[in-house]
Nucleic acid binder design. Sequence first.
DNA 1: CTCAATGCAAATCATTTGCACACCC
DNA 2: GGGTGTGCAAATGATTTGCATTGAG
Lengths: 150, 150
Amino acid sequence: MSVQKEYETVKELLTNYLEERKFRKTPERYAILEEIYKIDEHFDIDYLYNLFKKKHFSVSKATIYNTLELLMEAGLVRKHQFGKVQAFYEKSYFNKNHDHIIMLDDFEIIEFCDPRIDEIKNDFEEAMDIEIESHSLYFYARKKKVDNKK
Amino acid sequence: MSVQKEYETVKELLTNYLEERKFRKTPERYAILEEIYKIDEHFDIDYLYNLFKKKHFSVSKATIYNTLELLMEAGLVRKHQFGKVQAFYEKSYFNKNHDHIIMLDDFEIIEFCDPRIDEIKNDFEEAMDIEIESHSLYFYARKKKVDNKK
DNA sequence: CTCAATGCAAATCATTTGCACACCC
DNA sequence: GGGTGTGCAAATGATTTGCATTGAG
């Protein structure tokens, strides 16, 4: 699906979300959503903020924080803590649930999926009579050192 | 094993760790280690800081931060981010590796172990030729709503 | 027109840093 | 004694908040 087509889809979802709760359809909310769905990696607040600054479309950080919060609630964005203070985000609608390997050498982020996570999740839900709303799994890894001893 | 006995054990481990690297054996480092091994839950920096304040044993926050960092490196403490800004810690030596379920109703923290995590870890290590140093897995859950419709 | 949303700056909160002093080695 | 570790306070950096202003409904 093209980027433009994807945006059309999530834009509709946002509109529904806002209308359902009688929230306002501000240009900032749509602009932020659109930018996010153009980004293919993980980004932080500053990245978005600078993006808008470069485009001479002024959006304050307060609004970015607020809007990302709202988009999370709408299920259109995922937030990550990666063990850092500063949070990272990513678009979430067309990406199915996935987990992350953080490469400690260069902080590259690799995504992966493994059905066993869901199995574990389901087992615990049943065993403990709880409902697991979400999960976060990070592997922190390094490239294997080349072993010169042969 | 009694709390006192446990402390004796980790105290020795800390001593070895410090001696190996020619770090100093300061009273603060041992006092912090001892307190931590008396705590059976997850705690944050402030909790520790206030604990010492109450005992009239003065330890600065800077030292607590430094020492927890050191104890982590020594493998005696684990740090958690739980998706919050502020970090939580727990003693780690007698607890084997485990993961956490965070109950969103009351922020209770439940620990669990599941061998499938290690399986996943091993599979990825092999498939990608990396070494996974650590991982963090949290399930965010709620008690199941009682269904009155029968 | 009204009130929710935005923008800006100030406030907050966890964590880090700089530096003088203390005390382990 | 010498230099690492500590304490304190100031600095930092991400996030939150308060409030005046704007603009969506």
